[in-house]
Design a binder for these strands. Sequence first.
DNA 1: ACCTGAACACCGTTCAAGT
DNA 2: ACCTGAACACCGTTCAAGT
Lengths: 216, 216
Amino acid sequence: MATVDTTRGGEAQRTLRADARRNRERVLAAASAAFAEEGFDVGVAAIARRAGVGTGTLFRHFPTKLELEVAVVLERAAGMSENLQAALAEPDPWEAFTTLMTRIVEQTSSDRCLGQATKPELLGDPRIQELQDELLRGVEEILRRGRDAGVLRRDVTAEDIPVLASAIGTTMERFRTSQPELWRRYLGVVLDGLRADGAAPLEPGPPGPDLLSGTC
Amino acid sequence: MATVDTTRGGEAQRTLRADARRNRERVLAAASAAFAEEGFDVGVAAIARRAGVGTGTLFRHFPTKLELEVAVVLERAAGMSENLQAALAEPDPWEAFTTLMTRIVEQTSSDRCLGQATKPELLGDPRIQELQDELLRGVEEILRRGRDAGVLRRDVTAEDIPVLASAIGTTMERFRTSQPELWRRYLGVVLDGLRADGAAPLEPGPPGPDLLSGTC
DNA sequence: ACCTGAACACCGTTCAAGT
DNA sequence: ACCTGAACACCGTTCAAGT
C-alpha cells in the first residue's frame, strides 16, 4: 500500500552475499527445469537436492513454494513478450493473429509449468497480473488490426485470448508425450471459430479484469 | 485379464451387512457433495466427518481416495447419458449437436469434480474408459447426422468432443462463482469453429483411443 | 464382519544451531 | 548474513484393538 515496488521480480537484489546470490540462482534454475518437466507437483526437497542446497536455503530465498512458482512463471515472461513481438512484426493481420495464438499455445503445451499456470493462487499474484496486463495491451493491437481488416470476428476481446490459449494448453498436457502436436488440431478449431465470416454472436460478454475473484 | 467384471461399479455388493451398506452409501453421498463443491482437494478426514464415520471405515469401502473419486465420477454417468438422450431426441441435426455440447459443458462447468475429472489417473481407470467408450458411440451418431446434413465439419471425430468439452469446462472452473455463465461464450467460439462452412483442414488427426498413455 | 482412532509415511514450512 | 538439517504440522493410508 505504501511503497510501490517497481522492480518486476519484487525480490530485493541489493547487496546479496556472493554465495547467497549464487544459491538463489541455482534454486531458480533447478525449479525452472523441474517445473517444466514434472509440473508444480515436484517436491521442494527434490528441487533443493537438484540445486545442491538444503531446503532451508530454498525457503530463505523463496519464503513459500508458491513464491518460487511465481518467480519461475515471471521468468517465462520473456518468451511471451517474444511471441508478441513476432506477431506484431507480421504484416498480414490474420497471419499476425494466428502467429500469436500458435506461439502461445505451443509454448503452453510444451511447458508443463505454463500449462498449470492458470491456478487461481498464481493468477491472483499482483506481479503476474501486472505482467498479464502488459501483454494484453499488445494483444489488443493485434486484435484491432484483425478486426479492421475484416478477418477477425468483432466481439472477441484481448481477455479472451489467454483464456482460450490456456484452455487448449492445459488440456493438452496429458497428450504431451503421446501426441505432442495435437494442440494444433484444437487450435485449428478455435481459429476457425474466431474468423469474421460465419460467426454467431457470443454470449455472454468477455471475462472482466477480475480474473481471480471467486473460488479460493 | 482372467475374469471380466461386468458389473459397472465393480464393487461386490453381495451380502453387505446392513450397517456397512448404509455407511458405504453415506460416504459416497458425502464425497459426491464435497467433490462437487470443493473439487478433489478435500481431505478424506472432512469427507469421513461429513459422512459421520471414521476414516478407517471410509478406506474399508474405498481402499484408496482415487477409488472414491472413480465411484463418484461413475455416478455422474447417468447425467451424461441423459445429455446424450436429450441430444438424440432433437430432430434438427445442428440443434442436436449444440444441445449435446451445451449440456456437457454446462455440467462440467458447474460440477467442480467433473471439471477435474480429466486427470490421468482417473482417465486411466478401466471402468471410466468403458463408460467413455459407451458414450462415444452415442456421440458418433450425433456427429454422423450433422455431417450428413452438411452442417458439421467432416473432419471432427467423436474423440474430439470430450477433449473440447473438458477444455472449456476445466478452464471455466475459476469463473464458477464470478461469471458462472461464461462457458457459453467459449462454447460459442468452438461451435462456430465446428461448422461446416469456412472450416480450414485440421492438423494433426484426432487423439487415439489411448487417451492416457504418456505422462504419469 | 465391520467400526474406530491412534500410528505411520510423506511433504511444505520453521527454527535452533552452526559457519 | 547465510547455510543446514532436524523438528513440526498436515494429509493419505494402515492396523491393532474393539463390538
